[in-house]
């Protein structure tokens, strides 16, 4: 993986997500198929390309903050091992854009 040489600002994505309206369901619409696959995954690009930083690597496993998911689907396409079980939230739940 190429490292970026330019300086990048620190961004608190939670502050951005605070501007977005969500109606969170009780259970996650996202799940990891096989936790061992993530352990073997060297780059873990999901920690980077997700625009809501839904995925974090904590205590040797991926955690999923599905409540802030923007439902773009990038992780489903971008996971190099097709290891994310991706569904839409139940009808009516999830992100609710005011402007779009």
């Amino acid at each position: 993986m190429k490292s970026v040489t330019v300086e990048l600002p620190n961004v608190d994505v939670q502050r951005k997500l605070f501007t977005t309206r969500f109606k969170a369901d009780k259970t996650s619409h996202l799940s990891i198929r096989d936790v061992d696959v993530c352990r073997e995954c060297k780059d873990k690009p999901c920690l980077w390309f997700c625009p809501a930083e839904v995925y974090k690597w904590e205590d040797e496993r991926i955690t999923i903050a599905f409540e802030g998911c923007l439902e773009c689907g990038t992780c489903r396409i971008g996971c190099p091992f097709d290891n994310i079980d991706w569904r839409y939230p139940r009808g009516g739940f999830g992100v609710q854009y005011k402007f779009g």
């Binding site: 994505v13 980077w48 971008g78």
Partner: peptide
Amino acid sequence: MISEFQRRRVHPHQL
């Protein structure tokens, strides 16, 4: 492109 983000350690929102 998502393939580009796969190769870089950069968040879209950081960019």
